[in-house]
Amino acid sequence: MLLSFSRFLTLLLLSSSTTSYILHCTFRMSGWWDGPMFYECEDTVTIIKSKDERKITELNGTHLRGRTNDDVLSFYAYRMNIACFPKGLDTYFKNIQYLGIVNAKLKEIHQEDLKPFFKLKVLYLDSNDLEVLEENLFEFNTNLEVININSNKIKFVDVSVFRNLFKLNYLWFDYNNCYSNKVSNDFRGVRKMINEINENCFVNNILSDFRKFQEKELTSLKAEIEILRVENAKLRDENTELKINEAKCLNLRENLGKCEKEKENCENENGVCVKDLKNFADLTISRIKCEN
C-alpha cells in the first residue's frame, strides 16, 4: 500500500517522538473474514515511542463519507511489532465484531484486553508468538463464532479458555507446540477438538507429565543408590578382611624376627618358622590382591 507524501512526512516526524503511540487507520469496506463486507479500520502503520507501549494516545485517519468511529465493526492489524495487545482500542471503536492482529509478534493476550469487545464474533491472532492461553481468556466474549490461533508457539492452555463459547463453530489451532488441528463450520467437531486441546495443553496435564517424569527419575536414583550401597558394603567387608590379613602379617613378621634370632630352629624344615613363612607369603599375596 502506497503512502502519500504528507503521510510519509508525518511518520518521519513521529519517529523522533518519545511520548506517542499513534494509531494510523485506513478506513474502508472490507471482508478479510469469509462473510459480509464490513466497515473497517486497517492499522497499516504503528509508531511506538512511549513509556507505556500498550497505550493508544492518538488516532489518525479519514472516514469515508457519512461514517464515524461507531460504524467501525472491524479492526485489522498486520505485520507490525507489538508484543502486547494495544490498550485503549475500545475508546475509539466500541462496536468491534471482527478483530485481527496477525503476524504482529504478539507475545501475550489477556482477559482484560478482550473484555471491552463483548460483541466480538471473529478473532484472528494467527502467526504471532503467543505461548499461553490464560484462565477464562474469553469470559466476556461469548458471541465468538470464529477463533484462529494458527502458527503461534502455544504450550499451555487453561481448561477454562473455551468454556462459555457456545457459538464457536470455527477453531483453527494449527502449528502450535502442544497441539495442531483445525475445525471449520462444525460445532460438535469444535467441542471434540477442545477436549483434545485440554488433554494435550492443559497446564495440570503438563504438570502431571512432569511429576511422572520426576517419579521415574526418582525410581532410577533409588536403584543407583541401592547399587552403591551394596558396593560400599562389599568394599567395607574387603577392607575389614584386609585389616585382618594385615594383623596376621604383622604377627608373622614378629615370628620371622624370632626365627632369625633362632637360626638353628629356622633351618629345620619341620620347624614352626618354615610353616609361618609359608603363611606369611600367602597372606602377602592376598594383601597385594586386595590393594589392587
Rank of each mutant, 00 (worst) to 15 (best):
V102L: 10
E145R: 06
N292D: 04
S160A: 07
D209K: 06
R287V: 12
V72Q: 10
W33R: 12
G88V: 11
N270T: 01
L99N: 05
E58Y: 14
F85I: 02
N255R: 00
Q111P: 07
I227L: 11
F173R: 03
V132R: 03
N60G: 03
D186Y: 01
N143S: 09
I206A: 09
Q97C: 12
T142K: 03
T62V: 15
T68S: 12
F8K: 15
E246Y: 12
L252S: 02
K275L: 08
L228Q: 14
R65L: 13
L256W: 09
W33D: 12
L3G: 08
P116L: 02
V161Q: 02
T284E: 12
N148F: 02
E135M: 08
R287E: 14
V203F: 07
N200S: 03
G35T: 13
K155Y: 02
E135A: 09
A104E: 11
N177Q: 13
N148E: 01
D174M: 11
H24N: 14
E260M: 07
G61I: 15
K107R: 10
K234Q: 13
Y179G: 04
R211E: 07
N205Y: 01
I48C: 10
D282C: 00
L277N: 06
K119E: 11
N150K: 07
S74L: 08
Y124N: 07
T26M: 13
E231A: 11
D186W: 00
K216T: 11
S160R: 05
S50C: 11
E53R: 08
E131Q: 13
S50E: 05
F8N: 14
E226P: 02
N136W: 09
S184N: 05
S4C: 05
K289W: 09
F38Q: 13
N95C: 05
N164T: 09
E196D: 06
L2H: 15
F93A: 07
A281P: 15
T240Q: 08
N239Q: 08
T91A: 12
V45T: 12
D43W: 13
F118L: 07
E53W: 07
N245G: 04
I197W: 01
T46M: 15
L125P: 05
E40S: 15
A233P: 03
V272H: 00
E199L: 00
N268D: 10
F202K: 08
N251Y: 08
Y179Q: 06
N177F: 03
C266H: 02
V72L: 08
Y98K: 09
E226Q: 13
S220G: 08
K275F: 06
E217Q: 04
K222C: 05
C25V: 14
L144Q: 04
E42Q: 14
C201R: 04
D282E: 05
E291M: 12
E196G: 01
K153I: 00
C259K: 00
N103M: 08
F202D: 12
L114D: 02
K278M: 06
Y124I: 02
P116N: 03
L207C: 04
N270S: 02
D90C: 11
I149S: 03
R229T: 09
T46Q: 14
Y21L: 15
I48G: 10
T26H: 15
L277H: 02
L137G: 03
H110P: 02
N239E: 14
F138P: 04
N255L: 12
L2G: 13
F93C: 04
L165P: 01
F162G: 01
L9H: 11
K212D: 08
L99D: 01
N136G: 03
N69H: 11
G257P: 03
K222W: 00
Y92L: 13
I206R: 04
K263R: 08
L120N: 06
